[in-house]
Structure formats: C-alpha cells, structure tokens
Design a protein around this nucleic acid. Sequence first.
DNA 1: TAGGATTTGTGCGTATGTATT
DNA 2: TAATACATACGCACAAATCCT
Lengths: 219, 219
Amino acid sequence: MSEQSDARTRFLRLHDMLRMRICLLDYPPGTRLSEEALATEFGTSRTPLRRVLARLEDEGLVVSQHGVGNIVTDIDPGEMARTYDLRRELAGLVGRLSPVPITDEIIAKASGFLDQGLALLEQPDIRALAHLNMVYFHFGTSLTLNEALREMSERLYYRTARIWLTVTPHLNLVDETAIFVSELRDSLSALQARDGQAAADIRRAHISLCIARMNAVKG
Amino acid sequence: MSEQSDARTRFLRLHDMLRMRICLLDYPPGTRLSEEALATEFGTSRTPLRRVLARLEDEGLVVSQHGVGNIVTDIDPGEMARTYDLRRELAGLVGRLSPVPITDEIIAKASGFLDQGLALLEQPDIRALAHLNMVYFHFGTSLTLNEALREMSERLYYRTARIWLTVTPHLNLVDETAIFVSELRDSLSALQARDGQAAADIRRAHISLCIARMNAVKG
DNA sequence: TAGGATTTGTGCGTATGTATT
DNA sequence: TAATACATACGCACAAATCCT
C-alpha cells in the first residue's frame, strides 16, 4: 500500500494548507507567518513548521529573514507575466510529451468539472471558482506521464495563482466564470474526441487569453 | 550591496557542495548521507544540515527515511529520458522567452568556454568535462530574463546531470569531449551573429543528440 | 545612540522508527 | 519474537539578528 510515515503525512498536510491559504489570499502578500503562532494552531512545535516554511521559501511563496519573520512574498507583475509565458508553453507540452491515452474515466472527470463550473454560473463565488480552477489544473497536468513536466507545471501554477485572484475583482466575476466554463466545455469536447493534444492546446490558448485580460486591466 | 546573511550564505554553500558531490557521483546512488557525519565535517550542528538535506529531497536528489537515513536517490532511466525530453524543450524556449540581447561580454564568455573545451581536448578528464558542462549550462540559462525558465531549467539539469556521467564511461571520453567542443564552437558562432535563438536551437539540438547517444548505449 | 522586545537560527537531549541479531 | 543499535524527527532552551522606543 501507499502508506506514508506520520511525519511526512503531516508535513504534506501542513504544506498544502499553508500554500492554499497563501494562494487564496487568506495570507495576502506581506503577511508575517509566525512560527510560534502556527505551531500553536497546529498543535506541534516550531520544528516541523520550519520544515514547511523552508519549502514554501524554496517555492518562492515566502521569504524568511532572521530576526524579522516569514513574510509572504509580494507579487511582481513583470515576473508573473514571464512566469505565465512559461506556463503557456508547458501547457502545450502536456499534449506532446508522454501524453496519457484518453480513457472514459478521464472524460467522466472532465464532464464532472463542467458540471461544477455550470453550478458556479448559477451561484458565482470567486473563492469557489479559484478552487475549482486549481483542481482542474491538476487534472490537466495528470494528462502527461512526464513527471518533471507535471512537477514544474504545478510549481509554476502555485507561484502565479495569486495574481489571478488579485486581478479578477477588477474584472467581472460572472464573465470570468463564463470564460472558465467555456474552457471546460472546449476541453471536454477535445477529450471526447480522444484528442489530448487538442485539449492541451485549448488550455494553452486560454492561458494566452488570460494573460491578455490581465494586461488589459494593468493598462 | 548584495549582502547575504551568514546563515543563508552557509546554507547555499553547503547545498552547492552536497549537490555537486551527488551530481559528480562522489556520492553514488544509494549512499547514505549521515547528518551527524556531515555536521562534524562542516563544523555545525545537525540542524542547518537538515535544512540542506530537506531541500535536496525537494529537488529529488535524496530521500529521507525516518530511522533509516538520507539516501541518495537511484536513477530511473525512463524518468531520466522523460526529464531530458522536457529539458530539450526548455532549452529552445530560452531563445524565445525574454531573451537577453547578445553583448560583447556574452560573446567573450562563450569564447572562454571554447578555449577551456579545447584545453580539455588536449588533456581529457571526465570530471573536468562534467564541471565545464555544468558551468556552460548556467551560461546558457543566463541568456533569458525569464526567471522561472532559468530556475526550472537548472532544477532539471541537476536532476539529470548524473545519468550522463554514468553513461559516458561506456562511450568514448575523447569523442564526448570533441562533441561538446563542437557544441561550444557552434554556440559561439551563433552568438557572434547576435542570434540568441540560433544559440538556443543549437543547445536544443545537442540535447537531442545526447539523448540519442544515451539510448544507443542502453540498447 | 542605546536598550529592550520580538523573531528566526542553532545546538542538543530525547522520542520514535527501522533493521539486525 | 524480543532486544539492541542506530538513524532521523521532535521539542525546547538559548544565541543572534532586527526593529522600535
């Protein structure tokens, strides 16, 4: 079985939680993450938390300064734009490097995402939209067997996830939801045609469009 | 100035040293890296070393098992092949995503690498070749301003650096050196023409050829 | 400028897990 | 199976750095 050691399980859980809080802006840029406060909250000592914060620092989500604190990093628009450029290219590669065969199970998952997206259209919620986008992104990377491509894509996703949430309030939430739903619909169509490359190209195109919308807000 | 805190400087130094030892096969796969032994060697306690080992684990170079040790990871040929596939694509992207203008200084550096390569032809040395390859790789990634692309490329480089060293003994060292020198020569020519995309394409092509040579050994 | 409050970094003793005898 | 040896994981006390008064 895929038993995990207790320590590793806790590490992964804490890392996921903190990363989620950062990416959903529960901890906006500049927030100080106190080791002692978090240790108290999670019922551990500082030591395991320091391991988690170290990884978040490696991932570029916090910076740790001796005598100051663990500070959630700021979002540099220029760097975010360049990171999106790379994410766009990686999204296309998912269809070309070791793509998985499209199974009925995959199509069912895509169909499920579309249902959830349609539900969000009825009852728009930026936080739920961000969460669905995150889960859908993982689904997208699961369509390649190239482990390195998956890892890099996800790493970059979490580094840029926040910028979308900060910009969307300036856009129209309903519009953004509709755009996302149309992506889900296009993606499902491509997968139903058993065309993984087309599905990847659709995600690639939508990243391009997302970049354009964010640039429009900036300008 | 770019002052670094003492702790961070030490962390980076230890991380570089251990990563180098792993990638140059001073620590072959399966080696156990004892926290206490390393702490004694570097004159620290185990705590800072655990931070370094944690990062090496995040990078996929070691796995840490409670009660067992920090073990240098094994090299899975299939995963290495897929990682090389991605490295090849990223090498091409360096020429397209935020490429730096080619300056005389850059050309001078490339010229210096060629000189060092030629010196290695006179006196072949697999270890020196591996080291020059590493420095040249960093030079290659410095030709893009896209930070994420640089980071991902380097991360993947260190993950695959070992497979080349394990395969080369089965190839001909002089031949491999000559191939590398020809890459340096082609790269210099492209840069002298101020064509960064051509330089990136050359690196991309050489990664393809390297994959082919390694596959030939395997078969 | 100096000093105290607060934070992260370090060192070490102990708990916990693993492998071997 | 149990006991022993030895490894990493953890918690805590203290050192070092920073900030504010």
